[in-house]
Design a protein around this nucleic acid. Structure first.
Lengths: 132, 132
DNA sequence: CCGTAAATACGAAAACCTTCGTATATTCTA
DNA sequence: TAGAATATACGAAGGTTTTCGTATTTACGG
């Protein structure tokens, strides 16, 4: 098994992210169920999805267990870890290491609703209080 | 010329980012100057860097103009655009469209200094004021 | 028990990215 | 001016990702 691990988690590819998102949202699925669930965003054939799952299984991104004649696949890593990893990567690669710049960029680039802004402010204030 | 444009900007690859970072920091460079400047982070051969620049030129990521016997290459897109694009992409791909979650993730994952926190809070407050 | 449908395994083609090697053109310089 | 540097152009090898096609196995219905 190839091992591209860097810190602790393998960074999923684009296709793998699609599948993981589905698994995170829907919980463990069979290949068929995944295909159906993905129907709206991806027009993948059955064997394509299966292949991805096999690869992801090898990489340790999903687990699988028998379920009748088929298998149930489940995400083996949680969404937060992946998010944290991608953020860290992005900060290093395009924000020259500055998390602050990333946050600024996100706020600037964005469609952040007033409610979200308020929530973000709350979080920041919380962090500041915690660290005081 | 291949065209992978999605919104308006072509998303640079890993190697391309290294080069762009250099160009953003140093301004227009010859291939040789780039090689030297990259020496610390990348051990690329001359022709490798040249090849990247040729590809990037085709993609519209850099411009070039004659300069003596050689050429001067310059970034054709600014850092902010690229940062914005990558953030937007990340939000869509791993934060299910929520900029807020990205910001939260960044703050959580991170080594953000107290000063940076304060600056971020200021920005948020500013945005809130602007929108009020 | 047999054939049909559904699931899995295997392998491979095409695209993209990284990385050079080599060949060619251009320019100093001794 | 001939040879040595230096630049550029071209092409190709090797790795990863995406995407299926086909072949094989498994299970159920008649």
């Amino acid at each position: 098994m190839r091992d591209r691990r860097h810190g602790n988690v393998t960074k999923p590819t684009e296709a793998e992210l699609h599948i993981l998102r589905c698994l995170w949202n829907s919980g463990p699925c069979t290949v068929r169920a995944l295909c159906d669930a993905l129907q709206s965003e991806q027009k993948w054939g059955y064997t394509t999805v299966l292949k991805f799952l096999q690869i992801m299984s090898e990489k340790g991104l999903v687990t699988r267990q028998p379920h009748g004649r088929a298998h149930l696949y489940a995400a083996a890593i949680d969404e937060d870890s992946v998010q944290t990893e991608f953020v860290g990567d992005l900060v290093k690669r395009v924000f020259q290491g500055s998390t602050q710049k990333l946050v600024l960029g996100a706020l600037a680039s964005g469609d952040v609703t007033p409610q979200e802004l308020a929530e973000i402010r709350a979080i920041v204030e919380n962090l500041e209080r915690e660290r005081a």
